[in-house]
Simulated scan of single mutants.
Amino acid sequence: MKKHDVETYTKLAEGAKFFLDESFKYIDETLISESASLIYSKILDKIEPNEKDIEIFNTTTFSDNTIELSQSEEGILLSEETQDAFIKAWQDANTLARKYVIKHQITHKINSIEILGHLNNLGFFIETLTNRHLLFLYQSRIIDDFCYSRISVAKIMERLIFIFKDEIISKKVHLNEITNLFSLRNKTVHYTPDNSILLKPSISELIQIWNQCKKIIERFEKIEKINEEKFSILINAYIDGFKNKWI
């Protein structure tokens, strides 16, 4: 088995920091997109169809066939004037969403595509720190070669259950939200037709995941005592920043 020194811990920490930063960059972009969609819908409400639009509506046969609809000529159901108004509305909505912050209810379900980036990077963040913690346990001789060689290549939830098996039994540690995180991430990895529709986590769901991530990391840090900027503090700052800005 390859020997690992301080550089390995440093590289894993750098990776974890990168994934954490990226995950919260993406969640910020996600909420900007959510805001843009809300603004866009409000602007569209004010756009009235013109005579040409009404003529198109009255003379067009609408198909209920998904393939036919997807292959239909773009813009056939709107006049050029209305199409231009829709394009401008979307541009204005995005400009306003970046200029002004719109508060969201914690029950709000996220539908923007940027959520893929958040969930993937947050999953990578937890997985990287879990890998580093297992290496620490191995090099501290808390677990032996046999255990490490097998558990280090197991699925992420199996690794976490192994690490916290005693605390789980005593109910000092809960992994339900972490399980949910990786369930959501699996939907991004396997982005099937069904998963593309089902992947709509609520803001409250994400906050619960973040809070449990912080608790798990605090457990790692309590054992490792590595002299570095604490990831539990970093993620807590991101959580507070998100709450203050968006809800």
Rank of each mutant, 00 (worst) to 15 (best):
Y148I: 00
R132N: 12
N186F: 05
C147L: 13
L175S: 10
T130Q: 05
D144N: 14
F164W: 08
T128H: 10
F136Y: 12
E158F: 12
K171H: 09
S170V: 07
I151S: 00
F125D: 01
T130Y: 00
F164I: 00
D166L: 06
N176F: 15
H190F: 10
E127W: 05
I178D: 10
T188W: 04
I126W: 00
I143V: 12
D144G: 11
Y148V: 02
S152W: 07
R132W: 06
L184D: 03
D166C: 10
T188S: 13
L160N: 00
S183A: 01
N186M: 04
C147S: 15
L181G: 06
L184N: 05
R185V: 07
K165D: 13
I126K: 08
F162V: 01
S170F: 08
Q139F: 10
K172Y: 14
I161L: 15
E127T: 09
R132M: 15
I161A: 15
Y138T: 00
S149H: 06
F125E: 03
E167L: 11
S170G: 06
R150A: 03
V153G: 03
R159H: 11
T188V: 15
L181C: 07
M157Y: 06
L134Y: 03
H190S: 03
K187G: 06
L160V: 03
S170Q: 08
L175K: 12
S170T: 12
L135V: 02
I161P: 07
E177Y: 09
Y148N: 01
S140R: 09
I126M: 14
K155D: 08
R141Q: 14
I151C: 03
A154W: 02
H133T: 11
R132V: 02
S183H: 11
G123M: 02
V189F: 10
R159T: 05
A154M: 08
S183Q: 13
F162P: 02
I142C: 04
E127Q: 14
R185N: 05
Q139W: 10
L181D: 04
I161F: 15
I168W: 02
R141M: 12
I169N: 12
Y148C: 00
M157S: 06
S140E: 13
I142E: 13
L134W: 02
A154F: 11
V153S: 03
L135C: 10
V173W: 02
F162E: 02
L135A: 05
S170C: 01
R141A: 15
T179H: 13
H174L: 11
K172N: 14
F124Y: 15
S183T: 14
D144T: 05
T188Y: 09
H174T: 14
I163C: 10
F162R: 00
N186Y: 04
R185G: 01
K165A: 07
T130E: 04
